[in-house]
Design a protein around this nucleic acid. Structure first.
Lengths: 188, 188
DNA sequence: GTCTATAGGGCGATAGAC
DNA sequence: GTCTATCGCCCTATAGAC
């Protein structure tokens, strides 16, 4: 065994999730998180740019599922088919990697705090921009590329919220289909 | 003349816009803004909940144009027609009330700073939620209500960005039409 | 790892308007 | 007298600098 306990990040993230759930995000100090993880405040900030980021460690992986699917999608797919596939890939990875209980606990914390909602929104907006970039690289011009990417992200968000709150055990994939079908309905 | 110069908010907002443009958002302290406005740091925080909010004083008015249009739209309009009218109303008010030069200066500051982008995103997201609420009050069920509202807001954002950057002097209304037409195209 | 500046909240004092 | 805008001072946590 080394000089330090292993998996400092994992411990910090677990401690943060617990403390935020127990006492709320604002009521929890970085010092308390670090203490529960057996580390110092300074170490926390070496792993995360700011206090909020401890709840977004999974974002790069999530983003890669989204954007990577667009980048490597078969050429013959339409922009809509591509963003649907991307949302479903990201959703499927989320379902199996973390699961609904973790997602629920995390989301409860985020929706309760505007600072965290802001961070969540910018992460999702940046993923949508990444998808739009990838669509343009496929030859889709703007505004189509941006609107298709925004459409896919909006459908994901609607589906994700339903996935967390609905009693019925529908999959994220089904809920994404539903949200996209809704757009066709709205457009008449 | 009273004890204080009038229009403290206006002075703070003007000073902030100038200083942010001159030295950047992060490089400017609240104390500097207050000083240029002839006030103290403490007074700044009485008017704005945090440093970022000084750039978002116009948001309630902007929001009212958006959501109010949905609330008072003729019953016979479809959800898509309603959100288009809302985006156009908000755009028209923005065009004449503040103008493109102000919008450009403000947007330059915002896009240069992630904290400010986050704040912008949550403001727009909350307006979209307000539109969705208003659509549900008209009898539009979810997920249609949410997706229609998100569609309208996405179209507004795309149009707004083009309005600021394009050389051609197209109106926001025209650009919103274009963005929404693009969705129809993407859906095939 | 220590040191420090800034954001931002709490609370009370002050100076006007009414 | 009340109400409201401003200021002053003290405080803590975040987050960046050294």
């Amino acid at each position: 065994m080394g000089r330090w306990e292993p998996n400092a990040q994992g411990r910090l993230e677990k401690a943060a999730l617990e403390l935020f759930s127990e006492h709320g995000y604002e009521q929890t100090t970085v010092a308390e998180i670090a203490e529960r993880a057996g580390l110092t405040e300074r170490t926390f900030f070496r792993h995360y740019a700011d206090k909020r980021e401890v709840l977004f460690a999974g974002t790069p992986h999530f983003r890669e599922n989204f954007v990577g699917t667009v980048v490597s999608a078969p050429e013959l797919l339409t922009p809509l088919q591509v963003v649907r596939a991307a949302a479903e890939a990201a959703g499927a990875a989320l379902e199996e990697f973390r699961g609904r209980d973790f997602a629920r606990a995390r989301q409860r914390i985020i929706v309760a705090n505007p600072e965290l909602r802001e961070r969540e929104l910018i992460k999702l907006a940046d993923i949508a921009m990444g998808m739009a970039d990838a669509l343009r690289a496929r030859g889709v011009d703007d505004p189509d590329a941006t609107m298709a990417a925004e459409l896919g992200m909006a459908a994901f968000r609607v589906a994700f919220e339903r996935w967390l709150t609905d009693a019925a055990e529908r999959t994220l994939s089904e809920l994404i289909e539903e949200a996209l079908a809704s757009v066709s309905a709205v457009l008449g």
